[in-house]
């Protein structure tokens, strides 16, 4: 419930400081805002291109087929296989991951092992592909260097950490 106070609180703090420091708040706001339009427009090609590619991959069923291959491995190490699709989709698509988490929580219950795993995974890593696409796209970076490798490796560690931590805390 504290969270509903947060954003209005920040706005109030910024405006109060601006008034105190005699900053012409409204003029500065409009000046800074303009940049937002420009960023949003330059973003669209990057975002749209990446989203279409991911959508094709998912809708074709190729994603599901790849996951099937990994199921026995998950069973072997004792992690519920239902969690695997989420682990794979989390770095790729935020909306897909969120709907998957919701579905897992609905089906197995929020307080089941699978429910706890899904909740923790959803919260402890972010959508790497989306962030990289959007952040680099907005400023027109063409050569991304090691960013994707670093991001995906960190996701792998994050997913494993989520599984291990949940097993320790809830089992």
């Amino acid at each position: 419930m504290i969270s509903i106070w947060f954003i209005p609180g920040i706005i109030l703090l910024v405006l109060a400081m601006a008034t105190w420091k005699r900053v012409p708040a409204y003029e500065v706001f409009v000046e800074g805002s303009k940049e937002g339009i420009q960023i949003a427009i330059s973003l669209l090609p990057f975002l749209l291109g990446m989203m279409v590619s991911i959508a094709i991959f998912q809708a074709s069923g190729a994603m599901g087929a790849i996951l099937k291959v990994f199921e026995p491995l998950m069973q072997a190490i004792g992690v519920p296989e239902e969690i695997l699709p989420l682990a794979f989709i989390r770095p790729i698509s935020g909306t897909a991951a969120l709907s998957m988490t919701t579905e897992l929580i609905r089906t197995f219950g929020p307080d089941s092992l699978i429910g706890q795993l899904a909740s923790t995974m959803q919260g402890s890593t972010d959508t790497t592909l989306y962030i990289i696409t959007v952040y680099f796209g907005a400023v027109g970076i063409k050569r991304m260097g090691d960013a994707l490798k670093v991001g995906l490796l960190a996701d792998l560690v994050g997913i494993i950490a989520a599984i291990v931590v949940v097993f320790i805390l809830f089992q």
């Binding site: 706005i11 910024v14 900053v23 000046e31 800074g32 949003a40 669209l44």
Partner: peptide, 25 residues
Amino acid sequence: AVMITLSLAGVLVFWLGLMKIAEEA
């Protein structure tokens, strides 16, 4: 994708404006 960009445009315009004030202050 267009919908996401549009709704992002809203938050971008708002927050970048507010943050500009924060920067100047």
